[in-house]
């Protein structure tokens, strides 16, 4: 596999969210505003890329039995960096995201990529795979939050798009709409491919 293939594969074909249904806890929780989703996505890309890289570097030295523990610790260290960075430079968003930054640690995508890819492949490939998977995740977040923010608040990234004539759909701000949006997204993406297989 070339580097480009690895990237495209982990971003689209094997997208963690819609193909493997991983990491959707945070995908649902932060998508009420686009800016939150963007920051969250960047945080995940950073953590995913660097932890994949590190785990791959150390893959020869980590004992098999305790590898989950070691991986979790590596991931947690990078999450702390993200958290401290957000607290220092973007305190407002850090407050909005609340515990969800910390929950990047238990985001199954990161563990999933660590287990499936970076514990078997060289560091540079793992780095690319990590960035790809992170971008795929961010893409899903942005799509969902675009719809939710547009209909729920009438804004995009905080700029008013739909004026006063627009009746805000308060359902879009509340929890259930996140479930529905993700379900619809998965439905749209999975439909045509399955028919071709038939």
């Amino acid at each position: 596999m070339t580097k480009k293939d690895i990237f495209l594969n982990s971003t689209f074909t094997e997208n963690s969210v819609w193909k493997q249904i991983l990491g959707i806890c945070s995908a649902l929780a932060v998508t009420n505003l686009m800016i939150n989703s963007l920051v969250m996505g960047l945080g995940v890309i950073f953590t995913l890329a660097l932890s994949s890289f590190t785990i791959s570097l150390l893959r020869e030295y980590i004992p098999k039995r305790i590898r989950m523990m070691v991986q979790t610790l590596i991931i947690a260290s990078y999450v702390i960096i993200v958290d401290l960075f957000l607290k220092a430079f973007l305190p407002e968003i850090s407050k909005n995201l609340g515990p969800y930054v910390g929950l990047i640690i238990t985001n199954c995508i990161i563990m999933g990529r660590a287990e499936a890819f970076s514990s078997k492949n060289p560091p540079v490939d793992s780095l690319i795979d990590g960035i790809g998977a992170g971008l795929g995740y961010t893409l899903v977040l942005i799509i969902i939050s675009f719809v939710r923010e547009l209909f729920g608040f009438g804004t995009i990234f905080g700029f008013t798009i739909l004026g006063d004539w627009w009746t805000k759909w308060s359902i879009m701000v509340m929890a259930p709409s996140a479930f529905f949006m993700l379900a619809i997204l998965i439905w749209i993406i999975n439909s045509p491919k399955k028919e071709k297989v038939k």
Partner: peptide, 8 residues
Amino acid sequence: PIGLRGAG
């Protein structure tokens, strides 16, 4: 519907 089965 097929695309909706499972997770959806």
